[in-house]
Amino acid sequence: MMSKVLLSIEDLKVHFTSYEGTAKIINGVNIHLNEGEVISIVGESGCGKSVTVRSILGLVPTPPAKYVGGEILFENRNILKFTKDEMQKMRGQDISMIFQDPMTALNPVFTIGEQLMDVYMWKGKKRNILSRVNKKLKQEAYSRAIEVLEKMRIPDPTAIMKRYPVELSGGMRQRIVIAMALMHTPKLLIADEPGTALDVSVQDQILIELKRLVKEEGISMIFITHNLGVARIISDRVYVMYAGEVVEEGDAKTIFEESYHPYTNGLLASIPKLDGSMGDGIDGRIPNFLNPPVGCRFYDRCTERKSVCKDTRPDLINLLNKRKVACHLYSEGRN
């Protein structure tokens, strides 16, 4: 079974410049996504998940960011080379994004309806002070907004359209934030830790709906989360990131049963156990990006390190069974 590759991030390198120096944040990331597939990216805070996925939509401000290497191919076109117009056409239409915090992702001074309808009517278009929309487009926008709200199982959508964000609960707002991203049924949906600000039961409900929706509409999705349990339920494949690099990649079902990279092992061990005891965390912190280790970026914290790890960066190699690992403990095709 060969499915078509929709997106592939190839050897992406992103640096951030500040007065302190150059932070080499994203250091050769490789991620790909097939049509109709859902992948997760997991990894601790600050490892570069958001920078990676925001790069896909050109949302990382340059400066301070600088794209020093690699490509992001969407349907075989390099997004990093897009003109402003091409970028605006692609956003919302081909690829769109769900923002993490429903409390801040909606504009507080416009009604839900106005925000949804604007996305329908104005996406990818030019606008100046004289631009007007005709009645027909407006009606279309209105019915599409209602339709999407209904898809998100929002009760009484006509009333919600007239509400301001401040008048709605967090869960409701998160559904609307998702609706915004779905207005044009994108081919790729990026969800950067949606709902982590909400309480767990609401969050679960929303995730279930999200998963149902992307499958129904045939949308591919990149899902970012801290929560390994969520990653396992929602996705087909998982990428584990550490300090701006992908350290392990594999099937969602198997990766959590048998992980190879010492960092992934540590992550799994740090999950609280069913018997209530806290898991063992990984000692130490993410390395300094201004002066990262030349070899394996996990070297300082790794309990299984070898002398070769200090100076030689491990490549991401294929193990058996669709699994890839970047670690000197393993060699190509083995295990």
């Binding site: 056409k89 919302g92 994004m97 992702a105 996406k123 934030v177």
Partner: peptide, 11 residues
């Protein structure tokens, strides 16, 4: 919400 509006492809 402004970064979000950009991501929706608004002018």
């Amino acid at each position: 919400y402004i970064v979000a509006s950009t991501s929706y492809g608004l002018p």
